[in-house]
């Protein structure tokens, strides 16, 4: 079973470190709300295990002036893809 993780707090909350302990191959993580500030954190993003999809919610990224600052490992997606990611994975774990 694969899991989609959502994360909505800025890197200073250190929520990603907890989330990463639960991630496994085939999972995905989507940064939403203040979580999108992770798009600036190359080193943190590299600590995400391989074969885990990493996404950022476009509306939140644009709102915060980050659209041209995203690390390349982030795939920027809108709400439709957010819903689709929920469908593609067996369950959703929210980190907030």
């Amino acid at each position: 079973m694969s899991t989609l993780h959502t994360l909505n707090k800025a890197p200073s909350a250190q929520l990603l470190a907890s989330c990463i302990k639960t991630l496994q191959k085939g999972d995905a993580i989507i940064f939403i709300e203040d979580g999108v500030y992770h798009v600036l954190e190359a080193a943190l993003l590299e600590s995400i295990p391989p074969k885990v999809g990493v996404y950022g919610l476009r509306e939140d990224i644009s709102a915060r002036g980050l659209a041209d600052k995203c690390e390349e490992s982030i795939e920027v997606v809108g709400y439709r893809s957010f819903v689709e990611l929920c469908v593609e994975h067996d369950k959703i774990v929210s980190w907030f």
Partner: peptide
């Protein structure tokens, strides 16, 4: 879990629900 007016989460939830209904779920 979140109230309107003090964090973004309720607004995100609304947008998410609108989208999923629009997508036929």
């Amino acid at each position: 879990y979140a109230a309107p007016a003090s964090s973004q989460a309720a607004s995100t939830a609304l947008q998410f629900v609108k989208t999923l209904l629009h997508e036929g779920h």
